[in-house]
Amino acid sequence: MTEQAILQRNMSSVNNTLNFIDHMDDEKKPFSGEAHLKQPVQPEERYSCKICDLSFPTKSDLEKHREPRVAIKPYPCEVCSASFWTKRDLEQHIRTHTGEKPFFCDVCGTSFSIKSNMRSHMKVHTREKPYSCEICNQSFSYKLHLNRHIRTHTGEKPYSCEFCDQSFTDDSNLKQHVRTHTGEKPYCCGVCGMSFSRRFILTRHMKKHTGKDPNSCEICNKTFSDKIHLKVHMLAHR
């Protein structure tokens, strides 16, 4: 190889090396300059959990996070298979097994398993009726009763029987009706053991044993549909 050819080969190798060094220097340069700063920053899309407000970069991460919350409730009942999100809900549920009713009405002594039910009951004594019908202005102590009343105006019957085509304005009437199909009789006489599908039939039956209405006032003989109203009435005789 001639001296000139060797010189050209060496120069070519040096140029390649210099080009590689320049390229590496460019790679190491920080992101700066007006051109870079002018680039719009796109907000990163996040997927938020509706239960605890944590957010995740992908939908699959969110679904993995939610799986244990949907499947496992941390407070199981030791008596039955029910489970609950909070200890408070579990404690309220356990009272359905034990029959415990720690909340008492100061007026008539009626007891309740849930404090909110006791507060709702107090409207019987105060005669408070905060729920009014916008159509006829009739007032009610409970929103449930207002909703039931409104259906007398609208004709709505959202509770349907699974055994026939009848429908009802409230679920209590549906439950009573379903018993005509199932034969269920949940109201039992404590004297003779006979059972009945409706409470008022049991009340009427009890007269055969006692000779009087079980929910009647011993002082004035006035009768009532249930023990709660009888207890309220008895206060008038004090």
Rank of each mutant, 00 (worst) to 15 (best):
S139G: 02
S225A: 10
N215Q: 00
K59E: 12
Y75F: 07
C192M: 02
K175P: 00
L37C: 04
N117L: 13
N10W: 05
R127S: 10
F56T: 01
V124W: 03
D26K: 12
R151L: 10
V14M: 11
I94C: 03
T58F: 09
S81R: 07
Y47V: 00
T98A: 10
V41Q: 10
T223D: 11
C49V: 11
T182I: 07
C220Q: 06
F140Q: 04
Y142A: 08
E162T: 08
C77V: 05
H149D: 06
V41S: 15
R95N: 09
I150P: 00
P186E: 06
A71C: 02
L230F: 07
P43I: 03
I135L: 02
S60F: 11
E162I: 03
R204T: 08
M118H: 06
P30R: 12
K175W: 01
M194F: 13
I201R: 15
L146R: 00
C133W: 01
T210I: 01
Y75I: 02
I21S: 04
H181T: 11
N16W: 10
R238M: 10
V191D: 01
S160C: 09
L146T: 00
P76F: 05
Q176P: 01
K64R: 14
D26T: 13
L18E: 04
D171N: 15
T58H: 11
H121P: 13
R69P: 01
Q42N: 11
V41G: 06
R204L: 09
D213V: 00
G193E: 12
S32M: 13
F224D: 00
M234L: 12
Y159K: 06
D22S: 10
Q8K: 12
H93M: 04
S111K: 13
K129W: 04
V79R: 10
D53S: 09
D165I: 12
P43T: 04
H153I: 03
K64E: 14
C52D: 14
L62A: 09
Q138E: 02
